[in-house]
């Protein structure tokens, strides 16, 4: 026990441990292929570029918060480390101890807190609420050319229902898909979400959109894709064993492609519609 304590007090021990930790941290650099892979990633410092027209709001807010927090963290570190070095015990100088409980200290702390709150939190809050009002909560209506999708989540899949060509839910040409959603580019896509069993969350990271699907309630969300391509849809609410496998494909098609797709999808939907199978007709009245 005593030897161990002595070893812990010895500088040599810590020097060796520190060197080991440093080598361990640098060891990935030895794997040149792995390093190259990381360097080759198209966007290795952040999320995929936003593919929706309100995505910039979230990206800007994210950047702003990152900068604010980094700056205040740096200031905090300086305030913490500087006195530790300046006032440490050394030859000719005795370390002092202060509770920080004088009236001046209390007032100083309160003032700094209020300033930090107003500058950082309120700033972020104002921008966030503005973004929510102008973007995420600003759900387009049908009149604005919205493409509407009803989402029925379940353990562990997404059921999507689009209106088909007739623009009405609950008709023979409703396009019903599982884990596969096709939407048009440059048109708002509006969702009505609910769930059969537990809470799920429709998460489209490339569109900067995430919304819970709760059983017994209909939630709304929307985005407007500005890039055609295939994107991932995930579940962002722990919903059971296979939560990690609960995903879907989002296909954003150019207007011409989408026209062809909607035509064919409606035609096949009509051919596959079974009027006697009432249980499969789960559309609900659209919630604006």
């Amino acid at each position: 026990m005593k030897t161990l304590l002595d070893a812990l007090r010895s500088r040599a021990t810590w020097r060796w441990l520190g060197t080991g930790a440093l080598l361990l941290m640098l060891s990935p650099c030895a794997d040149a292929a792995m390093l190259q892979e990381a360097v080759d990633l198209p966007n290795r410092w952040g999320p995929n570029p936003s593919a929706s027209d309100y995505g910039w709001r979230y990206d800007e807010l994210f950047t702003l918060i990152t900068i604010l927090i980094s700056v205040s963290f740096a200031i905090m570190l300086i305030l913490l480390v500087l006195p530790m070095i300046r006032d440490r015990a050394r030859a000719g100088h005795k370390a002092s101890f202060d509770h920080g409980s004088s009236l001046f200290d209390k007032r100083f702390t309160a003032t700094v807190s209020v300033i930090v709150f107003i500058v950082l939190d309120a700033w972020v809050l104002v921008i966030a609420v503005r973004d929510l009002r102008e973007g995420y909560w600003n759900i387009p209506t049908e009149l604005e050319g919205a493409y509407r999708v009803e989402v029925l989540a379940q353990q562990w899949s997404w059921n999507f229902r689009a209106t088909g060509l007739d623009g009405e839910f609950g008709t023979a040409d409703d396009v019903i898909t599982i884990n596969d959603l096709t939407v048009p580019q440059d048109r708002p896509v509006v969702f009505n979400l609910t769930s059969k069993d537990v809470i799920h969350s429709l998460y489209v990271p490339d569109m900067r959109m995430k919304r819970d699907a709760n059983p017994g309630a209909v939630n709304q969300a929307w985005f407007q894709p500005i890039t055609a391509g295939d994107f991932a849809i995930l579940c962002a609410e722990l919903c059971g064993f296979a939560h990690y496998q609960m995903g879907a494909q989002l296909h954003v098609l150019s207007p011409e492609d989408f026209g062809a797709w909607e035509q064919d999808a409606s035609m096949i939907a009509v051919a596959g519609f079974d009027p006697e199978d009432t249980e499969a007709q789960w559309a609900w009245d659209w919630k604006e």
Binding site: W156, S157, G240
Partner: peptide, 23 residues
């Protein structure tokens, strides 16, 4: 019960809670 019952039902009859309207 953990993996299958949500769709295939607790009794294995295919009437799980999440099986509703699945085609």
């Amino acid at each position: 019960v953990q993996f299958c019952a949500s769709c295939h039902g607790l009794d294995g009859d295919g009437y799980g809670r999440s099986a509703q309207a699945l085609r």
